[in-house]
Each structure stands twice: as C-alpha cells, then as structure tokens.
Amino acid sequence: MIKSSAINFKNSELTTAFYSFLVAGLFCFLSFYDTDADIYLFPRIIAVTLLVFSVILLISSFQLSRSYLKNSNSNVKNGLFLKILPGLLIGFIYMTLMDVVGFYTSAFFIFLAFLLLYGKREMTDPKAFIKKVAISIGFVFVLYLLFWQGLHVRTPIGLLL
C-alpha cells in the first residue's frame, strides 16, 4: 500500500497491470486450491476471466508508447499520501475502538480529532478548540437523536455509550 505513493507517471500503467495481476492470481489460487468444483464454479469462472484481463492489461501496458502514457489519468503525486496518513490512522483507531468504547463516544473523539488535525488554525488555540469541541458534541447529539431515539438503532454501548 505504501508503495503506491511512489507511483509516478512513467510506470503507472505498468504498476496498475502488475497489481491487478497479483490480485487476479491470488483470487485464482483461493478459488482453485483445496475447493469443491461444483461449489466454486462461479468464483473460478470469475477468477480466470479476471486473470485473462489482467494479462491483457499487462501486455498492452508494455506496448504503450511513452508519449501516450503522459496522458494517462493517474493523479497520484508524491506527498499526498503523507497528507492523508493521519486521517487513515485515525480511521483505523476508530474502527478498532468503537466496539469497545461505544459508538457515540468514539464518534465524538474521532470527529474532534479530524477537526483538530486538519483545521487551519493551530491545535492549541483555545478559542478554536472550544468551538471544535462544541461542534463535535452537537454533531454527536444530533446523531444520537436521529439513530437512537428516532430510528431505534441500538448501536453497541461498549464501556461508555
């Protein structure tokens, strides 16, 4: 995953073909290895077709001239990955903790974390901090009214709520 930040215009088509080939190969392996032919009939058909397409993509990306590649639609730039990395990390923590801590509590902290990390003003600015906490509480409260009270969805309570 980290590698994708290093993709540049020159080899993006080739990299794409390479990754798709890997995915198709893995899926082929999983649907053929130690499986029942009748039950895995559909996955097998899909896997083989996917593999064929990825080979076509691989061959055509070798053949493409460099001038055409310059027009390719890839928009990965170095540095962008660093920008989204904190967001990914917060998201990961959120996904693992919400079941334990409770959906609403974790939603509040994650919402606040996004506002603090990606806000334009400094994290330590007390005025901005209070405003952001207030907005987060408001958001989670509306969420609670909508899902818990309004729609009767019982999300896991966890340790807190």
């Binding site: 967001g87 998201g91 959120y94 919400m98 959906f103 939603a107 994650i110 919402f111 996004f114 506002l115 990606y118 958001f139 989670v140 969420l143 899902f147 969805v153 999300t155």
Partner: peptide, 10 residues
C-alpha cells in the same frame, strides 16, 4: 470528511 466518516459507520 469527519461527518461522512461517522455517518458511514452508523
């Protein structure tokens, strides 16, 4: 982004 994430989860 934060709102979509929380709403997506709920």
């Amino acid at each position: 982004a934060a709102s979509i994430l929380v709403l997506a989860v709920f």
